[in-house]
Amino acid sequence: MKNTAKKIRYKRSVGDRAISVITYFIYTVFALLCVYPFYYIFINTISANNLSEKGKILFWPQQVHFTNYINLSHISGLLTAAKVSVGRTVIGTALTVICAGFLGYMFTRETMWKRKLWYRLVIATMYFNAGIIPWFLTMKNLHLTNNFWGYILPLAVSPFYVILTKTFVESVPKEMEQAAEIDGAGTLMIFARIMVPIIKPILATVAIFAAVGQWNAFQDTLLLVTESKLYTLQFTLYQYINQASSLSSLVNNATSSTSLGSSLASAQTATSVRMTVTIVVVIPIMLVYPFFQRYFVKGIMIGAVKG
């Protein structure tokens, strides 16, 4: 039986084989196109800067050194930006997860007063928005411009994540809740003690989605922030791309006392600064990416069914 099935599977025509070859080829090329840029930038940051500035590093690093990364600490503002980025990612993600988990659970409570109305009120926000200028003026009126909370509060309740958790909570057997209720547990107690441990997987999914969103956010800095102490890494990187030549002189001046002996190979150039910062901003994404992969298919499917 198994044998015949195998035979059928391997009965391929010439056309079938041609398709195979072509698909393998196209996918390989596209995958390389997606990955090579990251690799290219990385090998340039650890190669001799005078070579990389001329575009000589294409496939392998040459004269490997790590001074580019060490010298980043001499750029004023970069550390502050990193702190802001990490801060908003940690606090923002925590808040978003709490909101999504709690609301996702509460919207399954049929006893709640006018439950459907509130649920629709939250979900409707997926389908419209006021536009960036009215939003900006609102934020200004609320004194959330040049304010760290301007990064956090508007993103706290996200309808998509609420749907995601609600769908997950609905798949949990009702008996668990009912048993706890008979034992006299209140709503909050049931949520904290029973629901949270069960819905952990979906909360992890939301956390990763939210963290990547917070880390990558750029537009809100652009709109809301004019004080450099609240600039994020993304925003700082954008500025560096546009003004890297003045930047490299800044770095070289800062390090000049120690760089008397340093060669051309490790002197900072516009290219090296730009590329090194790029890699620094990419690294956190690369670190969470494996976890992301495990969860996103699940997450996107639940969202697709409901959304």
Partner: peptide
């Protein structure tokens, strides 16, 4: 490999475009 670019911001895409 092909889902990776989705998770970086447009600023990073621009930076990559600039570098290349």
């Amino acid at each position: 490999a092909t889902t990776l670019p989705n998770f970086i911001s447009w600023v990073l895409v621009y930076s990559i475009a600039y570098c290349l």
